[in-house]
Amino acid sequence: MACPKLFLSCLLLQLMFLFLVPEVAHGQGLKVGFYQKTCPNAEAIVKKVIGQVMSVAPSLSGPLLRMHFHDCFVRGCEGSILLNSSTNQAEKDAPPNLSLRGYQVIDRVKTALEKACPGTVSCADVLAIVARDVVVATGALSYDVETGRRDGNVSSLNEALNNLVPPNANIITLKADFAMRGLSVKDLVVLSGGHTLGTSHCSSFSDRLYNFTGKGDTDPKLDSNYIARLKLKCKPNDQTTLVEMDPGSVRTFDIKYFDLIPKRRGLFTSDAALLDDSETKAYIDLQIKTGGSTFFKDFGVSMVNMGRIGVLIGTAGEVRKVCAKVN
């Protein structure tokens, strides 16, 4: 909506429009304990299931955490990452999401919740609570999760391709993408710390090993010894091999990811980019110097901030009975 004339009146109309749309950009309407009356044991049920899963499959912690990230950055935190498509055109079918695992865990949690409180807890809230519980199970501090999200009914492969932050993003792109979603530069560096958990396909960083500028070269910002190690695992055009994002610490939530960045051993271009901004670099230096004195608390705060992106509340959307399909 352009406002070449009558600027004030037009601005007021724009503001009215923003308040009328069902997608709430900054999480108004969410609150801690949303299900206190309608499903008082909801979070305890989720915690029990996740505890059982982590005891036998701790490698799912990274993918389950990323599932919440990837959901929120496309259409907002409204569970669209979970929807199936008969033509393989849903968000989960997009190449950046093919390394996500653990959908069966979400289904297991949802089944338990439906048994206790039918039609009450949204799949979007399940993702947020599960993300908290997997990081706590792997060593993070707990934090209160705001709930009250409702589920969307649209999931698009193309939207995932266009909206997920690519692993080769530079610092300008990263800051712009986070700012567009109401997240700060601090949120950017803190949430990047989530790369301490999980793995990535070689294809997400192979250009840094074999063809960084299109001339068959390597990325000068990547440690040469690390390049040699990665080449042993990732051959050119390898689309299937998985590599640990935080080698040796892939199942533990800690600050070792931040130790890797100044050593030029961050796996992605977007990791190395955190050294190109004074604020993100200063945060990394602080965590290294203090042994992560603020990171664990900061991570909870930034996860809550991210969980407010584009949520559906009130009568918008629905509460899915099965997370993989609309009611």
Rank of each mutant, 00 (worst) to 15 (best):
residue 114 E to C: 01
residue 168 N to S: 10
residue 162 N to F: 03
residue 173 T to D: 13
residue 167 P to V: 13
residue 155 S to D: 07
residue 155 S to W: 09
residue 146 E to H: 11
residue 126 V to H: 04
residue 104 Q to N: 12
residue 105 V to P: 01
residue 138 T to R: 04
residue 157 L to Y: 12
residue 167 P to C: 09
residue 131 A to E: 11
residue 110 K to T: 10
residue 112 A to H: 04
residue 163 N to Y: 09
residue 171 I to D: 12
residue 143 Y to A: 08
residue 120 T to M: 12
residue 144 D to T: 05
residue 174 L to W: 03
residue 143 Y to L: 13
residue 117 C to I: 03
residue 139 G to D: 03
residue 114 E to Y: 01
residue 128 A to V: 05
residue 113 L to C: 12
residue 135 V to I: 15
residue 108 R to E: 13
residue 105 V to E: 00
residue 158 N to L: 13
residue 140 A to I: 05
residue 164 L to C: 00
residue 144 D to I: 00
residue 151 D to Y: 08
residue 126 V to A: 05
residue 129 I to V: 15
residue 135 V to T: 14
residue 159 E to P: 00
residue 106 I to L: 10
residue 157 L to K: 13
residue 172 I to K: 15
residue 111 T to H: 11
residue 146 E to Y: 11
residue 149 R to W: 02
residue 146 E to K: 15
residue 149 R to G: 01
residue 128 A to Y: 05
residue 166 P to L: 11
residue 106 I to K: 13
residue 125 D to W: 02
residue 120 T to R: 04
residue 132 R to K: 14
residue 171 I to N: 06
residue 145 V to L: 12
residue 150 R to H: 15
residue 106 I to T: 09
residue 150 R to E: 02
residue 107 D to P: 07
residue 162 N to W: 08
residue 135 V to D: 00
residue 141 L to G: 11
residue 176 A to D: 07
residue 166 P to T: 11
residue 173 T to F: 14
residue 126 V to Y: 04
residue 109 V to T: 15
residue 138 T to L: 05
residue 111 T to S: 15
residue 116 A to V: 11
residue 152 G to C: 02
residue 144 D to L: 14
residue 114 E to A: 02
residue 117 C to L: 10
residue 103 Y to K: 11
residue 102 G to A: 01
residue 155 S to R: 06
residue 132 R to L: 11
residue 173 T to L: 10
residue 171 I to A: 07
residue 151 D to S: 09
residue 123 C to T: 12
residue 102 G to D: 00
residue 164 L to R: 04
residue 141 L to H: 14
residue 175 K to M: 10
residue 140 A to D: 15
residue 109 V to G: 06
residue 136 V to W: 05
residue 168 N to G: 04
residue 135 V to G: 01
residue 159 E to K: 13
residue 156 S to R: 08
residue 147 T to L: 12
residue 115 K to A: 13
residue 119 G to D: 01
residue 165 V to H: 00
residue 151 D to R: 04
residue 155 S to H: 12
residue 128 A to C: 11
residue 107 D to V: 08
residue 137 A to S: 14
residue 106 I to D: 08
residue 172 I to T: 15
residue 137 A to E: 03
residue 107 D to Y: 05
residue 121 V to L: 00
residue 122 S to M: 03
residue 133 D to Y: 05
residue 174 L to Q: 15
residue 103 Y to V: 01
residue 134 V to S: 03
residue 138 T to V: 05
residue 109 V to S: 09
residue 156 S to Q: 06
residue 123 C to H: 09
residue 165 V to C: 02
residue 139 G to T: 06
residue 170 N to R: 03
residue 137 A to P: 05
residue 123 C to P: 06
residue 129 I to A: 06
residue 155 S to K: 11
residue 170 N to L: 02
residue 124 A to C: 10
residue 160 A to D: 01
residue 135 V to E: 03
residue 157 L to T: 00
residue 102 G to W: 00
residue 127 L to M: 13
residue 130 V to Y: 13
residue 118 P to D: 07
residue 136 V to D: 02
residue 113 L to S: 12
residue 136 V to Y: 09
residue 168 N to E: 13
residue 152 G to W: 01
residue 116 A to D: 09
residue 144 D to S: 13
residue 175 K to H: 06
residue 157 L to R: 08
residue 113 L to P: 03
residue 137 A to F: 06
residue 118 P to V: 05
residue 150 R to A: 06
residue 152 G to K: 01
residue 126 V to W: 04
residue 133 D to G: 01
residue 169 A to D: 06
residue 120 T to N: 08
residue 123 C to Y: 04
residue 111 T to W: 11
residue 131 A to Y: 08
residue 166 P to W: 12
residue 160 A to R: 06
residue 171 I to F: 08
